[in-house]
Design a protein around this nucleic acid. Sequence first.
DNA 1: GCTGAAAATTATATGTT
DNA 2: AACATATAATTTTCAGC
Lengths: 174, 174
Amino acid sequence: MSGHLDLIDLKIIESLGGNGRVRLSELAEIVGLSIPSVSERLDKLQKNGIIKGFTTEVDERRLGFDIQAFIRVRVDSSKHYKSFMEHVMKEDEIMECYSVTGEGSHIMKVMTHNTASLEQFLSRIQSWPGVLGTNTSFVLSQLKKNNCIGADIVKKNLQDRQVLLTFDEKRSRK
Amino acid sequence: MSGHLDLIDLKIIESLGGNGRVRLSELAEIVGLSIPSVSERLDKLQKNGIIKGFTTEVDERRLGFDIQAFIRVRVDSSKHYKSFMEHVMKEDEIMECYSVTGEGSHIMKVMTHNTASLEQFLSRIQSWPGVLGTNTSFVLSQLKKNNCIGADIVKKNLQDRQVLLTFDEKRSRK
DNA sequence: GCTGAAAATTATATGTT
DNA sequence: AACATATAATTTTCAGC
């Protein structure tokens, strides 16, 4: 069986993006449905993986992590992919890591305490097998951070394509 | 008046990072305090800005945004900073934007529908006053994404420095 | 700053259209 | 799919330590 997303689902997603802890009662108010209906839709959105989870935005600087940086890494990934991945997972200071095209094979967002701890981190990375080089850009300030794509742009995209987003549900026996 | 963060606060933050919708009752269980105590601590963490908010992780690809890219932009920011900022805010496809050191003055994370919409986006950016050039890296896959710094590493940092993180509270009259 | 217990609110389960 | 109702769970409030 398959379902499709409608504007109400997009509104639910958008509201939850703005405040992941909104109450069902408030969501119901926003989208104009009853609480059980909203609850059911939310369950489906989670079960189908469109909503992956809920999280909390923390001011990391207030926790003593003054330095944020984007680090491009060139990895000889054909041979050392697995060990690179393991190292990335183990390093708590690597908040995000992506495989990318362009200069360097990976880009990671790192948070660390000060320049000394960054220096230690960089020398650690450079000792990993397959790491050919790094290129660090310090984050000076954050101009924008959206948690979630807005309902409007999703809706616009859908209209442009004149399609409905569909998702798979667990198939139930006939 | 000022307060300081203790290990219980860090555990609360970490739990909320893993699941932004955990119940107070569950949090109370985790940290070993009563529900009202946890509720009070959570309020303070929010009021003091250490917790900036709650949000939802969405699988954007499922919403029709197949392409993710990091785009470095060189901006003549001394003259055109304000107008650049305004353009960045208006573009829904720019999910994040940072002022950085290194090649290019800014790095942004962009989500868009397909290569055609990316091409349109890039030509739009390049028409903004002060934009001297762009450099696009496609995201092939996400290896890691942490929502929140772990309590362990925060604690370790604190121990290394032998300090307590302090925060300001609203001053109450003597 | 923490707790227990009452009060208010919110979420879940069930049956109906 | 959505709803109303009933029931269960959770959160908030507040007095007391």
